[in-house]
Amino acid sequence: MKTPEERAAEALAARSGHDEPRGVEWQRAGGAPFRPAASGSTPSASATPSAATASSSARTADADPSLVPIPQLIRDAVLLLARVVLGVVLVAHGMQKVLQGVSATAQGFGGMGVPLPEAAAVITMAVEIGGGVLLILGLLTPIAGVLAGLVLAGAVVFAHFSNGLFAADGGWELAAGLGVGALVLAVVGPGRISLDRLLLRRLRGPETLAAP
Rank of each mutant, 00 (worst) to 15 (best):
T42E: 10
A45M: 13
A11I: 01
P65Y: 05
A45F: 13
R15G: 02
V85K: 00
P49T: 11
V68Q: 05
A51T: 11
R28L: 07
R22Y: 13
A13G: 07
L80S: 02
A9Q: 08
T60I: 10
A51Y: 08
P65N: 06
W26E: 05
D19S: 08
P71A: 07
L12P: 05
L73V: 12
R75D: 15
A52D: 15
S56P: 00
W26A: 07
H18P: 00
L73K: 08
G87P: 00
L12A: 15
R28T: 09
A52V: 14
E20W: 11
S16D: 14
G17W: 01
S46C: 01
L73C: 06
D19T: 09
S46E: 09
P43V: 13
L12M: 14
A47V: 12
D19C: 03
E6P: 02
A32T: 06
T42H: 09
R75L: 10
P33K: 08
H18E: 06
A77S: 09
D19H: 04
Q72F: 10
S66P: 01
G17P: 00
A47H: 10
R7E: 15
I70P: 01
A54W: 07
I70M: 03
P65I: 06
R59Y: 14
G23M: 02
P71M: 05
L86M: 04
V24Q: 06
L73Q: 11
P49Y: 08
S46N: 06
A51M: 12
V24A: 06
R28V: 02
L86E: 00
H18C: 04
T53G: 13
T53H: 15
Q72S: 15
G23T: 00
T48N: 01
F34W: 13
L80F: 14
P65K: 02
A9F: 03
L86G: 00
E20P: 08
E25Y: 04
A77W: 01
P36R: 04
A14Q: 15
E10C: 05
A14H: 14
A77R: 00
S55R: 15
V78T: 13
R28G: 03
K2D: 07
F34I: 02
L73W: 12
S41H: 11
P49R: 13
P36I: 00
A8N: 04
A9Y: 02
T53E: 15
V84I: 11
R35L: 12
K2P: 08
